[in-house]
Design a protein around this nucleic acid. Structure first.
Lengths: 248, 248
DNA sequence: CGCAGTATTGAAATTTCTCAAGCCGAGTGG
DNA sequence: CCACTCGGCTTGAGAAATTTCAATACTGCG
């Protein structure tokens, strides 16, 4: 069977991991070498596949290589609340290294490919290479900042504001991860799922979407997001990219 | 002027810091010694005082000694969204060590006392004592888990569910921090502020509160929370303490 | 005592959700 | 190639939840 790499070159796992860490701390050559020592397995997911489930105690952590993953809570009612979305390079369950039982689940939203790292290898590396630990720590801190924004979106923004804000965040992060095409990128979510992320019904999502469309701010069709008017969209969203901490 | 300690013995700063770190990682004697080397300043706050403000680049991090602090976002409209509440022992802006510009503010909710630690001392310690770094890392991960719950509360729970959930979280954390008195503890928030935390109007908070009261689940008067029926409250809230990761 | 901030109440205005139906496009099997 | 189905999108309208507005208590404090 042919590997994807024959068609669309996938980033090398180690390269991506090093790139990710380097965004968050100044690494010495020895740090980079240590990172390259980490042994990863690749895994392909189909839409809806759970990587880990709420309550489990995983022994591995993953990095997104292709496609999109999401974290979500399952309420006792069975209702689902999406918590965050994860693009190439993200490590959406790195916290499981230290928080042993999962307080949420992680699933694939589309056809996705992930790299799987054993916990013990990572832990060993963090103890021997404090710099690397700090890099990944910072990465989890940015995660937390994104959660904070979501609280504010769900708590204080209008429906259109929420949707616009999510679109802003996704496109900025996609561009940052070099998986955007100018001002458009993949966003494999239905309106129903958007509702489960933003705390609104799919009907409300639909109406907010139409408003953004009528104002010629964004286009969203067939799982593809296209920002038509960045300035306008960011204004409606009240979007301030500070919280993504793309500086260091 | 008399020090508070003459009346209500305040925990020693170093002890509290060590206790906090020990909850999250197994520390060697040398780790503890290093922690005790950190030099802290004490600071007293009055209700409403900001410790750091959104946009600033603090050079220090703080730990709560007495009273309660809160993180919050300020929207362009001027509206405020509370993000989290912090009790004795919490380090509510430790992330500022690595995320240099604050994406939110931190304020005192009542008369509060904090310990102030210079960033550079902490950073030095983290590099020389990876174990300690891991302990504080874990602490920020629990923080993130609490944010995730807040997303779900604001997004998917009923009004009474949200209020009940917040109450559950606060009482559990207060008991954990040994600042509760059985099933009651301080909670220096007005109904309006609760609304700004839970994404609902103060009227709705009032009505949810009355419902919880009528059901004899909780009592909340004069900034004091009293849980009358823990099981009932937790059921209404859909509260599962897993996310607080009080295990290790 | 009176002020300021908070809590409470009722009712109208508004938003949001639910329900129900129709539509559209992609994929399937005859 | 077309009819059919399924899922997701769209629309409208009534029901329900929520907010806003307005007025009235209550409380601690100077």
């Amino acid at each position: 069977m042919l590997d994807d790499e024959d068609f669309a070159p996938q980033p090398n796992i180690s390269d991506l991991l090093v790139a990710q860490a380097s965004e968050h701390a100044k690494l010495a050559d020895s740090d980079v070498a240590a990172l390259r020592e980490v042994h990863a397995r690749k895994r392909v997911l189909t839409p809806g596949d759970d990587v880990v489930h709420q309550g489990e105690r995983p022994a591995v952590a993953v990095m997104v290589l292709e496609g999109m993953l999401a974290r979500y809570h399952t309420l006792s009612s069975g209702e689902r609340q999406y918590l965050s979305f994860h693009l190439r390079g993200n490590l959406p369950d790195i916290q499981s290294l230290f928080l042993h039982v999962m307080d949420h689940s992680l699933c694939a939203l589309d056809e996705a490919v992930i790299a799987v790292f054993p916990h013990d290898q990572m832990r060993r590396m963090f103890l021997s290479r404090p710099n690397v630990a700090l890099a990944f720590w910072r990465l989890t801190l940015v995660d937390a900042a994104v959660f904070r924004q979501a609280i504010t979106s769900n708590g204080a923004r209008s429906h259109t504001g929420r949707l616009a804000h999510l679109f802003c965040e996704i496109i900025v992060r996609a561009r940052e991860a070099h998986i955007a095409n100018g001002w458009s990128c993949a966003l494999p979510l239905s309106q129903g799922q958007l509702g489960q992320a933003l705390g609104m019904s799919h009907i409300s999502v639909n109406r907010a979407m139409q408003w953004l469309r009528r104002e010629r701010l964004v286009e969203f069709r067939k799982h593809k997001l296209e920002v038509l008017d960045w300035t306008g969209l960011a204004r409606i969203a009240g979007f301030d990219p500070t919280y993504l901490h793309i500086d260091r």
